[in-house]
């Protein structure tokens, strides 16, 4: 028992030791992510203007002292909209990931624990989800559920969870055979308790690695769907929507397209670097294709 809980605690501690000591790239990435988090949380205090305040007299202005990044076609302050856009980008991805983890642990855990026919049925069910290209499944779900941010989050979650569920199932299956699990079962610990003491921390560590690697990818998904007009509805500020809004002005004001795209690029880069770093730190076994 004691060895087992030590193991569990060690993996929990490892999980939260952020890769701060790593290279300069990781440091910059952490800095960017911190900036994004601050922008998202403190948007009302940081943003110089109301992001939705229309001022047609000041439409399509170039950058100036009063509007650092200029204004869009409705005279809204570009910088303020960028800052508020962080909320949607980070928030939607965060909620998607929470949803994915909940679904994956429920479905994959059930599959791995029950085994037999139930396991087979659940896995075939997941196979059906995996047969869709992610964007196509997301488009289908939005088509059924209707456009809007909540539905985008549901769509992103449903189009990704099957991958995670399969991994949870694999982990459960391999952990079920591990000595300390067998030992604690023999010592009379209940299934639920074994799950939360031993399996859950290990599964979470793996899930977090996978999720961090996926954050950038999901941000791109959200932005792409919003760009198509399927996600956040105008006038809400979101980077993909801003790019979409700016397209009629690509000739006259290309900057309106550059800013949100740059924000998206930098954020995705930062999360990708962090994803790699967390993966290298927590799980050398996943060390597949990045560094050598």
């Amino acid at each position: 028992m004691s060895v087992a809980s030590l193991d569990a605690r060690a993996s929990r501690r490892r999980m939260w030791r952020l890769p701060i000591r790593d290279s300069w790239a990781v440091r910059i990435a952490l800095f960017i992510v911190a900036l994004l988090a601050i922008a998202a949380i403190a948007a009302p205090w940081i943003a110089p203007y109301d992001p939705d305040a229309v001022d047609l007299a000041r439409r399509l202005q170039s950058p100036s002292l009063s509007h650092w990044l200029g204004t869009d076609h409705l005279g809204r302050d570009e910088l303020s909209r960028l800052i508020y856009g962080t909320r949607v980008s980070l928030g939607s991805v965060a909620l998607s990931i929470v949803l994915i983890l909940a679904l994956a642990i429920a479905v994959g855990g059930l599959s791995g624990y029950m085994g037999g026919r139930i396991d087979q049925a659940i896995m075939r069910f997941c196979d059906c989800f995996l047969a869709f290209p992610t964007i196509v499944l997301a488009l289908f779900l939005i088509g059924i559920l209707g456009t809007g941010m909540v539905n985008v989050i549901i769509a992103i979650a449903l189009s990704h969870f099957a991958w995670y569920a399969r991994m949870v199932r694999g982990l459960v299956l391999s952990f079920r055979q591990r000595d300390f699990v067998l030992a604690s079962r023999a010592a009379g610990a209940s299934r639920v308790r074994v799950f939360f003491e031993h399996l859950f921390p290990a599964i979470m560590a793996q899930m977090i690695v996978l999720a961090t690697l996926d954050i950038g990818h999901m941000m791109l998904h959200v932005a792409g769907l919003s760009f198509l007009g399927l996600g956040v509805q105008p006038p809400t500020a979101e980077w993909g929507v801003m790019i979409g809004d700016a397209r009629p002005f690509v000739w006259s004001m290309p900057m309106l397209i550059l800013w949100p795209g740059l924000a998206l690029l930098l954020s995705v880069m930062a999360f990708n670097i962090l994803g790699d770093a967390v993966r290298d730190r927590l799980d050398p076994s996943l060390h597949g294709d990045h560094q050598h």
Partner: peptide, 20 residues
């Protein structure tokens, strides 16, 4: 850079560069 670039935004950049 490739894995982090939004494809639709890249599309606009290309238009800006090669068309405009």
């Amino acid at each position: 850079v490739g894995v982090s670039t939004p494809n639709f935004w890249l599309g606009f950049l290309l238009v800006l560069l090669f068309s405009l």
